[in-house]
Design a protein around this nucleic acid. Sequence first.
DNA 1: CCGAGATTTTAGGTTAGCCTAATACTGTAT
DNA 2: ATACAGTATTAGGCTAACCTAAAATCTCGG
Lengths: 228, 228
Amino acid sequence: MSAAVAHEPLTRSVEDYLKAIYQLSPEGRPASTSEIANLLALSPPSVTGMVKRLSEHGLLEHVPYRGVQLTDAGRRAALRMVRRHRLIEAYLVEFLGYSWDTVHEEAERLEHAVSETMIERMAGALGNPSVDPHGDPIPAADGSILERACIALSDVPIGENVEISRVHESQPERLRYIASLGLRPGVQVTVVDRQPFDDLVTIEVGTDKQVIGRELGHALLCARKVKP
Amino acid sequence: MSAAVAHEPLTRSVEDYLKAIYQLSPEGRPASTSEIANLLALSPPSVTGMVKRLSEHGLLEHVPYRGVQLTDAGRRAALRMVRRHRLIEAYLVEFLGYSWDTVHEEAERLEHAVSETMIERMAGALGNPSVDPHGDPIPAADGSILERACIALSDVPIGENVEISRVHESQPERLRYIASLGLRPGVQVTVVDRQPFDDLVTIEVGTDKQVIGRELGHALLCARKVKP
DNA sequence: CCGAGATTTTAGGTTAGCCTAATACTGTAT
DNA sequence: ATACAGTATTAGGCTAACCTAAAATCTCGG
Ligand SMILES: [Mn+2]
Ligand SMILES: [Mn+2]
Ligand SMILES: [Mn+2]
Ligand SMILES: [Mn+2]
């Protein structure tokens, strides 16, 4: 099926495309040209052009006007980049004094420049962590990834107590705001009220109450407590 | 004098050219096209083309058929890259278990990808070192560099005891060989014999005797003892 | 089932960086 | 003084990655 097998090293652009497509469709649903263009801040024609090249290299399949899906080779390469990105973020926070709002930008560049050796040394220094500073799971070196079941804070029923497990946000300003509310992976919150419009939920964090809007409520992914 | 002032970020290629030219002529003597081509493993016409662009950007001055010299802006940019390269090498050895023969390749890529913030964090974690794992001086953040006076091992007179201060070599295989002889920055050696041909010198390292040839003798830079 | 509006692709163009082959220059050796 | 060897530049071409403008296709409401 896949055309080219011998893999010359991928370019920075190619690596970012594959990672973006993976993140747009972790389960394999096709990603559209404009979604990709939007995520990477490129024009749609640029994406069409790159997609054509990538499909010739066997990294994805493209049905014109319908979207793209990663092949196995493409998904492997994408997961490799996700591993790199998240390990770098974790390393920067643990060893170089970064906070979670500044690591993304740095990792976005370093993920392409670091050798396999260095990534594994960093993983070792961290004790092979399973999640990054935003709570996102770090794929193993073999490409396996453990996605824990989670629910958006916006969808948590009234009265339920949940633990924030992931924060899906990369803009520094927003991340600082979230931190200022005391919200980060591992924190317990209880939903005490919900509005019938705009996905507004009121939560209790420790002793504080906060009203959370739609966007933020969808960015905060929570783990439900197991029924005893 | 220099044309363009506003500095868009330099590309990886440009940064490597500037660093190479600096290393070919630290004191400002012109570097030739073919020296640059040779050091960067590029064709001479490629170098001529890049040199033209760089001189238009005010980073160097090119006298056709005569060679190139960095401008102040070019030298600043070059020293910035040298600082990055050497700090990264030092960091990898200190914190990620690298040995001196493997750091160069990694640093050659990372030097372009790391932010100013990260470089200074690494410098801080290292305690602002003044030399890298090969004994080469690390320029300060302001671009100043302290070159200690040194003499090639090939040129040390018979009977003199010197300290190896720098090892000018980047090939891993050769560096491993040098290390296997017990030679590295800080080690004391005594020249016990010299041949009249081929710059051969015999040295004493601890209790061992070694014969050192021309190439190696020029790569090992030594500090002479101050007369008491 | 038909057309408007949104999405996507095609067409055509740019820039950075590289290459080889051909040409021009320089300095030296007869 | 001149030719030759070595070095450098010019000429011409390529690929990756981007762009804008124009054309094609899809979707959905009426
Ligand atoms: Mn990236
Ligand atoms: Mn993250
Ligand atoms: Mn480099
Ligand atoms: Mn070094």
